[in-house]
Computed example of a mutant assay.
Amino acid sequence: MKLRTFLIGLSIAYSSALNASVVRDDDKLLIEGKLLNSDADDVVELINEHVIHTIVFKNSPGGEWRAGMRIGNFISSKNITTIVEGVCASACTLAFLGGDKRKFSNQSNAPILFFHAPYSADNQSTIENLKRAFFSWIEQRTKKEIPVQFSDAINNTISARGGIFLFSDDDPIVNSSGGSITQICKGSEIRIPLDCEKTDSISAVSLGIINEK
């Protein structure tokens, strides 16, 4: 029950999120909120002007595809560690994958990654011609072939709320709901999150998305 309540709260947060806050603390960037192209500009500028070793993505509902890919591509050659604290969803996951080392946070906010197909808010539909780039970026960064279960889950979702939730294996919500570390959700606007299925057959670690403890 707690997991269902959590997912409902998460879907509400998507619609109310503000633009991102990008803050530098010594050699660390903290990025929180919705990613726009202007936020990508800020990230590029800060990394060009300062030595940045770590980027923490905290409670980002996603944002613009181009912003996520710009950040991810830019940091991919910078030997930067990326960390998820709280929720990192949609475009945030694209940016997160740019990290050389990618971790779940060990802080109090339970870390969660949420992947879904490229989606147009204007047309309320999946952007089919970006799916190839989406899968290619994941494989490029993880150096692993995407398993059929992952690609099928992405291809079968029917809204931006459908996709794959990847939890930390020590997440208290997961542990209280039977121990499954992945939720695959179709994304029906009527049945959120009643159409989600638990699985342990894929995880952030097995997929190579998380590659460092």
Rank of each mutant, 00 (worst) to 15 (best):
K2P: 10
K2M: 13
T5W: 11
L7G: 00
I8R: 01
G9C: 04
L10Q: 14
S16M: 14
A17T: 09
A17K: 04
N19K: 14
N19M: 02
V23C: 01
D25C: 03
D26K: 15
D27M: 03
L29E: 01
L29T: 06
I31F: 12
E32N: 07
G33I: 04
G33R: 00
K34R: 15
K34A: 05
L36F: 13
S38E: 13
D41M: 03
D41R: 05
D42I: 14
V43W: 10
V43M: 11
E45M: 04
E45G: 01
E45N: 13
I47A: 05
N48Y: 09
N48C: 06
I52V: 15
H53F: 07
T54H: 11
I55G: 09
I55Y: 07
K58I: 12
G63L: 11
E64V: 12
K78I: 09
A89W: 01
S90C: 00
C92V: 10
L94G: 08
L94I: 03
A95E: 10
L97S: 05
K101T: 04
K103R: 15
F104E: 01
N106P: 07
N109S: 14
N109W: 05
L113S: 05
F114V: 13
F114Q: 03
F115V: 02
H116E: 00
A117K: 02
S120V: 08
N123P: 01
S125I: 08
S125W: 00
T126D: 00
I127Y: 01
N129H: 12
N129V: 04
L130I: 07
R132Y: 07
F134Q: 04
W137C: 06
E139I: 08
T142W: 07
T142G: 03
V148F: 00
Q149S: 10
Q149A: 11
F150H: 04
N155F: 02
N155V: 05
N156R: 09
N156F: 02
N156K: 03
I158R: 06
S159V: 02
G162M: 05
I164K: 08
F165D: 04
F167Y: 15
S168P: 01
D169S: 14
P172I: 06
P172V: 09
I173T: 12
V174P: 07
N175G: 13
N175H: 05
S176W: 05
S177A: 12
S177D: 15
G178C: 10
S180Y: 10
I181A: 08
T182I: 10
S188C: 08
I190S: 05
L194H: 09
C196L: 02
E197S: 05
D200Y: 00
V205L: 13
S206P: 05
S206W: 01
I209D: 06
K213V: 11
